[in-house]
Amino acid sequence: MASSVAGTLYRGREGMWTWVLHRITGVAIFFFLFAHVIDTAMVRVSPHAYNSAVDTYKNPVVGVLELGLVAAVLYHGLNGVRIILVDFWEKGPRYQRQMTYGVAVLFVVLFVPFAIRHLSIVFGG
């Protein structure tokens, strides 16, 4: 039994954990979208109602949470491209593991500049 676990190609490896993260980030983004459509709907109530709803986003704590949301969106989108390549590119399945590291590199390249800019806006007043 131990040898079959050690020889598993998927379980406990990059393929499984990227799948777990894809589900978790997907559910989180889905629930955020529900809240976001409702806060945006305040533009039909009054300018004051909308401005006070969107003021929540300018709170530093929510500003940091938003960084988490953007991290979730970036991961989900980049890993989604990897899934598409595994499904449609003839060499995708062979390189699925290497592509997880491609996703990680692209994530850092996009996320770090965003984080620097966003946090300096949130905390810079």
């Binding site: 533009v43 300018p47 401005n51 986003y57 500003g63 938003e66 965003f114 806006i121």
Partner: peptide, 16 residues
Amino acid sequence: LMTGEGVHQIDFAFVA
């Protein structure tokens, strides 16, 4: 979030 003043620019007039 990245252009202008980022999250601070978002208000009713921005959406309009």
